[in-house]
C-alpha cells in the first residue's frame, strides 16, 4: 500500500494543530471575558456625602474598595487589591498595608514601601443629588498619584 503522505506525521500534525487551535481560542477568549465585565457600568451607592468626615479612610468590604477622604474634602476610591500580587490590603491610620509581602501605601495610594511598584488602582466617583457613588467594576491602573485623580464634590 502506498500513500501520498506519511500517515503518522499527518495525524501528529493534525493533533498538534487541534490542540493549538483550542489553546489559542481559550487564550483569546480569556481577554474577551475581561472586556465584557469592563463595559458593565455598575455604580455602587455609598450614601450621603455629608456623612463622610475629612481625613478618614472608609472600608467598603462588600464593594471591594476603600474611600480615602482627604483633609481638603477631596475623595479617592481605591481597589482593595494590592498592586503587587493581588492580596487585599488593610487600612491603617494614615494609609494601607498589605499582609502578603508588606507593601505599604499612603492615603493617596502612593507606594511608601515596596515590593509593590505601582500606586493603588482607582475607581471613578460621581455625586448625584448629594449621594456618592463608586464605579467599582472598572479598576483604573496608574503608575503614580496625580491631583487630577481626586474628586471634589
Amino acid at each position: 500500500m502506498t500513500m501520498k503522505f506519511n500517515r503518522r506525521g499527518f495525524i501528529k500534525k493534525g493533533v498538534i494543530a487541534l490542540i493549538g487551535a483550542q489553546l489559542g481560542y481559550l487564550f483569546f477568549d480569556s481577554f474577551k471575558r475581561k472586556d465584557q465585565s469592563d463595559k458593565d457600568q455598575k455604580w455602587f451607592e455609598v450614601g450621603p456625602l455629608s456623612n463622610l468626615e475629612k481625613n478618614t479612610i472608609y472600608p467598603y468590604q462588600s464593594g471591594q474598595f476603600y474611600l480615602s477622604v482627604l483633609e481638603d474634602g477631596g475623595i479617592l476610591a481605591f481597589s482593595v487589591k494590592c498592586t503587587h500580587l493581588g492580596c487585599v490590603i488593610q487600612a491603617q491610620k494614615d494609609g494601607f498595608i498589605c499582609p502578603c509581602h508588606s507593601s505599604s501605601f499612603n492615603k493617596y495610594g502612593e507606594v511608601m514601601s515596596p515590593p509593590a511598584t505601582r500606586a493603588l488602582d482607582t475607581f471613578d466617583i460621581k455625586v448625584k443629588n448629594g449621594i456618592l457613588m463608586v464605579n467599582n467594576q472598572n479598576a483604573k491602573k496608574r503608575s503614580q498619584f496625580e491631583k487630577s485623580q481626586i474628586t471634589y464634590a
Binding site: Q61, S62, Q64, V80, C87, V88, Q90, P99
Partner: peptide
C-alpha cells in the same frame, strides 16, 4: 474569604 487576606499569608 475573597475579602480578607490572612496575615501573614
Amino acid at each position: 474569604n475573597p475579602q480578607l487576606s490572612p496575615n501573614p499569608i
